[in-house]
Simulated scan of single mutants.
Amino acid sequence: MNPLVMSRNLVSLILPVLLAACSAQDAPPAEPPLAGAAIGGPFELVDSSGKTVRWSDFDGKYRIMYFGYAYCPDVCPLDVQRMMQGYSSFKQDNPELAAKVQPIFVTIDPARDTPEVVGEFTSAFSDDLIGLTGTPEQIDKAVKAFAAYYAKGETSEGGGYLMDHSRATYLMGPKGEPIALLRVDEGPAAVAADLEKWVS
């Protein structure tokens, strides 16, 4: 084959690859899925020691937010386990970035989830996880700020009951802005991947 033709053919094969590589490097970062959403806002709750904790206390840190309850028989423990396993994996690979992230568990069952109960629940998963509770009014305000949902189920003869609630796991930015929903339902690896994508 004519060397000139071969050269042109080679260029025609390589050029698209080079252009694609350049465009990938020059492409702006993806817009966070929840950018601009009306999610998040000020709240005042208490931690496991009974200390008052405000949303503004976490300014400057990314926040992972999950709403659940300690007496949950299945869903909450599974979600929180995956969430914290994903965070732990992210922390192992990116310790400096992980130091900028605060995982937070907020109960939607303040009648039973006292500071002590919330503390026992969160410590079963990780010392990095903060558990928060409060009065019914404080909890309701926090839940509504995050466009989450909860409702008390029917009380059994023994006095027990279940709580119906949404399962979203929010990643919020250093200014309290919504970034994305972590893919807890896909497992710890997906959570770690999401953190690696959005935490900088």
Rank of each mutant, 00 (worst) to 15 (best):
D47K: 02
D47A: 00
S48E: 15
T52M: 09
T52G: 06
T52R: 13
T52I: 11
R54L: 14
W55K: 14
S56K: 13
D57F: 05
D57L: 03
D57A: 07
D57E: 03
F58C: 03
D59Q: 14
D59W: 07
G60Q: 09
G60L: 13
K61N: 14
K61L: 13
Y62K: 07
R63I: 10
I64K: 12
I64G: 10
I64C: 13
M65S: 12
M65G: 10
Y66Q: 04
Y66F: 15
F67W: 05
F67L: 01
G68P: 01
Y69W: 10
Y69Q: 00
A70F: 02
A70T: 15
A70M: 11
C72A: 00
C72M: 02
C72V: 01
P73A: 09
P73I: 13
V75H: 00
V75Q: 01
C76K: 09
P77M: 04
P77N: 04
P77E: 01
P77Y: 03
P77G: 02
D79M: 03
Q81L: 14
R82Y: 14
R82N: 15
M83Q: 12
M84R: 10
G86F: 07
Y87A: 07
Y87Q: 11
Y87I: 07
S88I: 11
S89C: 02
K91R: 15
K91A: 15
D93N: 11
D93W: 02
D93E: 14
D93M: 08
E96G: 01
E96H: 08
L97K: 15
L97A: 14
L97E: 14
A98W: 00
A98M: 02
A98C: 04
A98P: 02
A99T: 03
A99V: 04
Q102C: 02
P103M: 06
P103T: 10
I104Y: 12
F105G: 05
F105N: 06
V106F: 12
T107I: 09
T107C: 08
I108D: 07
I108F: 12
D109A: 08
D109C: 06
P110M: 09
P110G: 05
P110C: 12
A111T: 14
R112F: 05
D113C: 06
D113A: 01
T114V: 06
P115I: 04
P115D: 09
P115F: 07
V117Y: 10
V118I: 13
V118W: 06
V118N: 04
E120N: 14
F121N: 02
T122W: 10
S123N: 14
F125L: 11
F125A: 11
F125M: 13
S126D: 05
S126L: 08
I130A: 11
I130W: 11
G131M: 05
G131Q: 09
L132N: 00
L132S: 07
L132I: 04
T133A: 00
T133P: 01
G134R: 10
G134N: 07
E137R: 02
E137T: 07
Q138R: 05
Q138Y: 05
I139N: 01
I139S: 04
I139V: 12
I139K: 00
D140Q: 15
D140W: 00
V143K: 09
V143Q: 09
K144A: 10
A145G: 03
A145K: 08
A147L: 08
A147M: 10
A148I: 08
Y149A: 05
Y149N: 00
Y149E: 01
Y150L: 06
Y150Q: 06
K152C: 04
G153S: 04
E154G: 12
T155M: 06
T155N: 06
